[in-house]
Design a protein around this nucleic acid. Sequence first.
RNA 1: GUGGCGGUAGCUCAGAGGUAGAGUCCCGGAUUGUGAUUCCGGUCGUCGUGGGUUCGAAUCCCAUCCGCCACCCCA
Length: 437
Amino acid sequence: MSTILQALRGMNDILPDEAERWEAYEFVLAAWAKSYGYRPLRTPLVEPTALFRRAIGEVTDIVEKEMYSFTDQLNGDHVSLRPEGTASCVRAVLQHNLLYDGPKRLYYHGPMFRHERPQKGRYRQFHQFGVEALGWLGPDVDAEHILMCARLWEELGIEDLRLEINSLGSAEERAQHRHALLAYFESHAGQLDQDASRRLHSNPLRILDSKNPDMQTLIRGAPMLIDHLGPDSKAHFDAVRGLLTEAGIQATVNSRLVRGLDYYNRTVFEWVSDRLGAQGTVCAGGRYDGLIAQLGGKPAPACGFAIGLERLMALVEDHPPAPTSTEVYVIHQGDEAATVAFAVADEMRRVGMSVILNCGGGSLKTQMRRADASGAVLAVIVGEDELRSGEVTLKPLRAQGEQWRTSRTDYIEQVAELLLGQNEDEQLEDENGRTGS
RNA sequence: GUGGCGGUAGCUCAGAGGUAGAGUCCCGGAUUGUGAUUCCGGUCGUCGUGGGUUCGAAUCCCAUCCGCCACCCCA
């Protein structure tokens, strides 16, 4: 063991059983995003460190202590593995001037990197599916994002996510509130715990989020951000909530909901599960109207959110999508038959069947066992007898019925028929299963 | 990053100073070309790693790595 190198801490291999689930989810999520008019964007995993420092904020935990940052040995560039997707997305949009002909709906997915202490649902390399709408002022887009999440949970059969939403107001309103907050906490400095004292000047908003029971009274008395919202921000927030109510989506306003990235303003939201322990946030996002200008673009509003794929998939572990299975397993005996079997497998694959050709020899019994274990619907046997008569043997492995021999010129049609019949049976079973439960 | 718990066969786990085990999986066989079940046989481990204590360590001690839980924070 000691001589075998391991994956880095908090970075996981996704083995075939799980990887099949991943592919299924990636497919479902991409189709979902597309159905709302979002288009894919792929950006590099490595970006200039400055991008994240400017976008996420210098004093955030992510930038201060969680980024994989290093110096490119060859040219001295300061680069970082991306800790989230929005910064890269905005960078790409600006670099290629994608907003030149109007607003854009975009989605992305892939690995993100944060150097945190791993736990279940929290990894150093984790995966997000992100959705961004750039160029719309809202509140319709804000509501669209929350709505599409709700519909996705329905589609995936997740029923216990609760929605928390808040408004952070504009940058000016936040600054005002920060002032009031600072004054309040400074006048009660004696009641602040260690964490709160530390955050007092770096990020006083975060004090509101403290879980320390001794702090709750103090926090309840603190100035509320929502009371510092101007008429525009208030109208925006009300409009978002109105649209959600119209759509029948229940949201809890959590005035202490604060996102960990500096770029957020106005609407922020989180979908939270109680089944994931301390890592309950499955999906979160909000509006970031200032970021585009902050990164040097022509000012434009935007909002977006990201889903943590590990967390999402942990919620539906009990109902994994069925993996696609092999249809045909080709068995053969003897050198000459091996050549024929090779060609037979190739022929079937070229008409679209998924075929495993037995490799590595083995007795007929052994090969039959492998065929059974492969999940194939049908075994095609090429033995010495078949070779002499120019035939193959077809043996159904799942359905009733005996094996039979057929000529090598027309066996494919019979295989196709058999597979078709099998698929119909499965669909029937599927439907019965669904209506029956 | 802080604190707590854990790591024994590919997998699930028992063993708590005295010869490393069970189930499962995998492999081979049960009269020569056929899957499940059953029966028989077999492989598998530096007991996470490295030190220390001891006549003797999977077992006790220290360090370290990895995982889990809480904090911090977040998807």
